[in-house]
Amino acid sequence: MKYSIPKTITNIESGWCPGCGHGIVTRLLAETTEELGISDKVIIVRDVACGSMQSGVVTYNNIGAAHGRTIAVAAGAKRIRKEDIVIANPGDGSAYSIGIESTMHAALRNENILALVVNNSVFGMTGGQMSPTTLPGQKTTSSPYGRDTSYNGNLLDIMKVLNTFDIAYLARGSVDSPSAVMKAKKYIKKALMMQQDNKGFCLVEILSPCPTNWGLSPEDSLKFIKEKQQEYFPLGEYVDKGGYDK
């Protein structure tokens, strides 16, 4: 079979809305860990909210962390289980708002984990409030007239911050097209290889659609990522200490 559903994906239907990117990111995680033969080592640390629904979709053992604490919890677990592959799965609200101090300091300590951040530019589960990655002008339930940076503050591009840090890997992918999905998969796979080789902290952010809270059709959500989100959050690899491309 050319393309088959990864074995680590269960038959349980996810609770995600139609067109939610979490399902794609979760499949990439399943594919990459299977291809690397590390499925039996994976520990997922998931956030509350939409990302938490990953627990039923995959067969991995996992830990449900408090909101914003996935990276700290994952770092704690990894230090005890160094042979395992520990993946924190925060959203943008979790990793860049309430949990930003742990994102920064896990990076400073070069904790040997992967932070796989699903960035949909809103707090999804609570109904689509403004997050640190909500775009200027973007309407959310807590920026009903559109994000006004003079009133709501500026947005955070984590790549601009962490690219100065001594970490193993930093990349931003997207799931807005089949080719983008394949690139995102490459980033995730590289980060997992780095963890296997004990290279240290990896953060891979994936721009991901939230049609429900963006008030857009799934098709228009893909366009929004390509045309709007990527204007503020350019894709690519920002730090790469792996040398796996050579």
Binding site: I43, A75, G76, R79, I80, S102
Partner: peptide, 26 residues
């Protein structure tokens, strides 16, 4: 063992949470 001076008490208790879930005496 593992010692971490964390960025805050919040991070301290949450790293402990992860270590405990992983089976350590924390």
């Amino acid at each position: 063992g593992e010692f971490v001076q964390t960025e805050s008490e919040v991070a301290g208790i949450n790293m402990l949470f992860g270590a405990s879930a992983a089976g350590a005496r924390a």
